[in-house]
Simulated scan of single mutants.
Amino acid sequence: MSTNPDGDRDRLLAEAVRLREAGRREEAKERLVALSGVFPDDAEVAYQTAWVHDTLGLEAEAVPHYERALNRPGLSATDRRGALLGLGSTYRILGRYEEAVATLGGAAAEFPEDGALRTFLAMSLYNVGRTHDAMEMLLTLLAATSSDPEITGYRPAIEEYAKDLDATM
């Protein structure tokens, strides 16, 4: 475990995360930026730093932290999924739609059961003019995940129409 003069990395990171979770995001950001300076190659610190910037609406500032987190070893699968979703959705918010599609498309391939990734990918596909692909993805996801009896009763039809929205049956 790495340490620094101000204390132990794990303790400092945990404190910053608790601050973010408690709604003290500015304070968490200050601590995480400082921690990033001490541990510039730490993927988990970079991910948490990106996350807090995102929660503050500082999307452009979050991007390099997400990218650093994803380009270093050390993220758990859960944190990797979260960083990919965060980066992809942040690219989308910033109007970087092609990068959003590439990031979220890769993430959805890596984590195929994650409906949130596919939802954000569908929004990004819409933004690049791929409306058919976006609708197909959303309809397929809706049919597969809805517990609404009005939806489940039409599941086979929705799944079929998702393949070709222009088809008539």
Rank of each mutant, 00 (worst) to 15 (best):
S2E: 10
N4F: 14
N4I: 12
D8E: 14
D8W: 08
R9H: 10
R11N: 11
L12R: 15
L12K: 14
E15A: 14
E15I: 10
L19T: 03
R20Y: 04
A22W: 11
R24A: 08
E26T: 10
E26P: 06
K29Q: 13
E30W: 02
R31I: 06
R31H: 08
R31D: 03
L32C: 01
L32M: 00
A34P: 02
L35S: 04
S36V: 04
S36E: 00
F39W: 12
F39L: 13
D42K: 05
D42P: 08
E44N: 04
E44M: 07
A50E: 00
A50N: 05
V52H: 00
H53Q: 11
T55E: 10
T55S: 12
A60E: 06
E61Q: 13
A62F: 00
V63K: 01
E67D: 11
R68E: 06
A69F: 00
A69E: 03
A69S: 07
R72T: 07
G74M: 11
G74Y: 14
L75M: 06
S76R: 10
S76M: 02
S76P: 02
A77K: 14
T78G: 12
D79Y: 14
R81C: 06
L84P: 01
L85M: 03
L85T: 00
G86N: 01
L87A: 10
G88S: 05
S89I: 01
T90R: 01
R96N: 14
E98T: 14
E99C: 07
E99V: 02
A102F: 15
A102N: 15
T103C: 12
L104P: 03
G105P: 05
G106M: 00
G106H: 00
A109Y: 05
P112K: 03
D114E: 09
A116E: 15
L117D: 02
T119I: 08
M123I: 06
L125D: 04
Y126M: 12
G129N: 09
G129C: 07
R130P: 01
T131I: 15
D133H: 11
A134E: 07
M135W: 15
L138G: 01
L138Q: 13
L139V: 09
L139P: 03
T140F: 03
L142A: 08
A143K: 01
T145S: 15
S146N: 08
S147D: 15
S147H: 09
S147Q: 12
S147P: 05
D148Y: 07
D148F: 06
P149I: 05
E150F: 09
I151V: 14
Y154N: 07
Y154Q: 10
R155D: 08
R155E: 09
R155F: 06
A157I: 12
A157G: 05
I158V: 11
I158F: 08
Y161N: 09
A167N: 13
T168F: 09
